[in-house]
Design a protein around this nucleic acid. Sequence first.
DNA 1: AAAGTTAGAGCCCTTTGGTGA
DNA 2: CTCACCAAAGGGCTCTAACTT
Lengths: 354, 354
Amino acid sequence: MSQPESPSRVRQSRHARGAAPTLHDVAREAGVSLATASRVLNGSERKVAESFRERVEQAAAELGYTANVSAQATARGTSPVIALLVADIADPYFGLIAAGVARGADEQGLVVTIAITERDPAREARIVRALRGQRPQGLILAASRTKEPTDSDSDTARELAEYARFGGRVVTFGAGSAENRHVEIDNRAGAEELGRRMAALGYRAAIAIAAAEGVLTSDERLAGFRAGFESGGGAIDRVLRGDFRRESGVQAMTAALAEGVVPGTLVFGMSDVVAIGAMSAIRDAGREIGADIAVCGFDDVPSSSDVTPALTTVRVPLSEVGYQAFRATVDADWEQAALPLEVTVRASTPGIPR
Amino acid sequence: MSQPESPSRVRQSRHARGAAPTLHDVAREAGVSLATASRVLNGSERKVAESFRERVEQAAAELGYTANVSAQATARGTSPVIALLVADIADPYFGLIAAGVARGADEQGLVVTIAITERDPAREARIVRALRGQRPQGLILAASRTKEPTDSDSDTARELAEYARFGGRVVTFGAGSAENRHVEIDNRAGAEELGRRMAALGYRAAIAIAAAEGVLTSDERLAGFRAGFESGGGAIDRVLRGDFRRESGVQAMTAALAEGVVPGTLVFGMSDVVAIGAMSAIRDAGREIGADIAVCGFDDVPSSSDVTPALTTVRVPLSEVGYQAFRATVDADWEQAALPLEVTVRASTPGIPR
DNA sequence: AAAGTTAGAGCCCTTTGGTGA
DNA sequence: CTCACCAAAGGGCTCTAACTT
């Protein structure tokens, strides 16, 4: 009566159902000690005789044993996970970065946990704190950093510092603190080249659709573009503010159009997604993209080449960027590999005939 | 000499640097027992006197304590993670699903670990096995299932069964086994309606670009479309095979065009991404999308409305689908909420004037 | 006697001495 | 002396049972 409804050859361990077999179960089944079973199954330098190894492996297979990662983590004092924070995983920008991170993690047999900040600094701080509890080997922060930290930003910073203090490795994008490793995308240079090229195409007046002032990526891209565009004789007439989302491009552009946009103007969206939103607004206003109003963006996300006219942009090797960020979390001595940006001129900026 | 370079008020615990503070440290600092500290910090029914609670909380704050999730997991026997398997996180289809899953997980304070199958059954099996080790509360499999399992598929199935056997909850998409919960997208009905609508618009000849035979989602969409389209007097002339990726759409369409495509033909891509690839090929061949060759897809990923002409498709609430999948992993009694699909006719299928 | 504390066993695994062949 | 095994301690936490006031 102590073993209700148990089939005849049931194991008498406590996990008849409901719990996965443990190393203990395997060891007992194989008739060896825990230590030996551990060595066979969960990797160790020390040798185990072939006959024992076989017995253990068979027992494990029979029982469907899988090492309990949490237990391993507590015992080893390190857990095989990389934490990735992104603003929005459905955004292709972050999707591509995540793909790169995942690729790297897979290579190293690490697991990646993903969390979404929704671009909310308070949320971000909360998440970093929660993630700290996982004791991940590395933490990659791919949400947008701002220059002058809000209170919540410094909450995040504090949590990150705390995490780093106890051996965790933080990787951020763009200029990080001296402490943290960071993957640098040369937004400024890429944007400058873009500005130069656009000026060379004959554009002289531009409208920029940027994120809020202080958002580093946006600031850098804007400054770079301005430098390049002005060096070629162009000028940015208006800077509209929003964020990196498509809807932001739609709204800013709609507003700009309402105020009036002269033909031959170039619109520069701080991200392709924004630029594509702007294109949509332009079209909805009955204007033409290209000869009438030209548009360019930044990132070269896949859909940039699928819209019509195809979007002029700066190619950022996002997946590679993600991969680099991953390497930065695990490599003892890491140096960022070159991440070349490349201006890609397409039909959305046909140029102005002289 | 026993405490090198230690600041004066250093704590004497073993973790002067390198290891995060433990509950033990907090308890000592607060002058209470482990049990009390645990109750205060890591949630418990039992009451703790206010004065003790304060002391503990302050000590925790001072030390920057965060509970070690792995240790909690081993002690509690359950770990707060949901595992998500997707074919490709950079694909907007999976990106949106992941966003929905992440939203749900966040609501419940769970962590999402993500893994990429790359649509490789062998990889998938390997990953499921690795993920099993995490003892996640739920496992969401969002990669494409096939009808007649390959060997590797049954490897996956075996791992899933093993996982489920010990209390894990598996959620798949599309018709799952009787055992597993599954989130059903009514591909057939959606595609049928699409087919009907396309026939009503005057289309009579269609080319379908599908994934390999046996890939359930593709099969269902194709069958549904065929039924609807034929019921309206149309017929599918050619079924080209590839996968769900953009490149597949390009290749299939290029091949189709080489063989010849008469004006007025409708191309149905089994996913928007494929349809967009086909659009690209059509354009590259110097043909026109719309009046000449019409195109429709499935999913309504964001870029579908950004391409020109905008893509006719079937709207799938992907983020909601992901959310549902998440609920299915955690709710004791779960019933799938309705996931209405909606045919969205856009400019890529202007119809054939009679 | 109620309320709240504490000691200590237990979770699953790793790893280090020891020990017998 | 190797070689290859085992026992046992330890890792950070939870939770029950016993104890204090």
